[in-house]
Simulated assay, not measured.
Amino acid sequence: MNTKKKFFAEGLGTFALVLFGCGAATIASVSQSGPEGIGLLGISLAFGFSVVVMAYAIGPISGCHINPAISIAMLVAGKLSAKDTVGYVISQCIGAILAAGVLYLLASGSAGFTMPEWGLGSNGWGEGYLGNYNMTSALIAEFVFTFLFLLVIFGTTAKNASPLMAGLAIGISLALIHMVAIPITGTSVNPARSLGPALFAGGKAMSQLWLFIVTPIAGGICAALVRNLFIED
Rank of each mutant, 00 (worst) to 15 (best):
residue 7 F to V: 00
residue 8 F to H: 00
residue 9 A to Y: 07
residue 10 E to V: 04
residue 15 F to V: 08
residue 17 L to F: 13
residue 26 T to R: 12
residue 27 I to Q: 12
residue 27 I to T: 11
residue 28 A to W: 00
residue 34 G to K: 02
residue 35 P to D: 09
residue 36 E to I: 04
residue 38 I to A: 15
residue 41 L to V: 15
residue 42 G to C: 02
residue 42 G to Q: 01
residue 46 A to V: 04
residue 46 A to P: 11
residue 49 F to N: 06
residue 50 S to I: 04
residue 52 V to C: 00
residue 53 V to K: 03
residue 53 V to C: 08
residue 56 Y to L: 02
residue 58 I to M: 02
residue 58 I to W: 00
residue 60 P to K: 15
residue 61 I to N: 12
residue 61 I to Y: 13
residue 62 S to M: 07
residue 64 C to E: 01
residue 65 H to E: 00
residue 66 I to S: 01
residue 73 A to M: 01
residue 74 M to K: 10
residue 77 A to G: 15
residue 79 K to A: 13
residue 80 L to C: 10
residue 80 L to K: 08
residue 83 K to Q: 09
residue 86 V to F: 05
residue 87 G to I: 11
residue 87 G to E: 12
residue 90 I to Y: 01
residue 99 A to W: 08
residue 101 G to I: 00
residue 105 L to I: 11
residue 108 S to L: 10
residue 112 G to C: 09
residue 113 F to Y: 13
residue 113 F to C: 04
residue 113 F to R: 08
residue 116 P to V: 06
residue 124 G to Y: 02
residue 126 G to N: 12
residue 128 G to S: 11
residue 128 G to M: 12
residue 130 L to W: 00
residue 130 L to K: 07
residue 132 N to F: 13
residue 134 N to R: 09
residue 135 M to K: 07
residue 136 T to A: 15
residue 140 I to T: 09
residue 147 F to R: 11
residue 147 F to H: 11
residue 148 L to H: 12
residue 151 L to F: 03
residue 154 F to T: 10
residue 154 F to N: 07
residue 154 F to E: 03
residue 159 K to M: 07
residue 160 N to H: 10
residue 161 A to L: 02
residue 164 L to P: 00
residue 165 M to F: 12
residue 165 M to A: 15
residue 166 A to V: 00
residue 170 I to L: 02
residue 171 G to R: 04
residue 173 S to R: 01
residue 175 A to K: 10
residue 175 A to I: 05
residue 178 H to G: 06
residue 182 I to G: 14
residue 184 I to F: 08
residue 186 G to C: 13
residue 186 G to H: 10
residue 190 N to L: 06
residue 194 S to N: 03
residue 197 P to L: 10
residue 206 M to T: 15
residue 212 F to A: 09
residue 214 V to W: 05
residue 218 A to R: 10
residue 223 A to N: 02
residue 223 A to T: 04
residue 228 N to F: 07
residue 231 I to R: 09
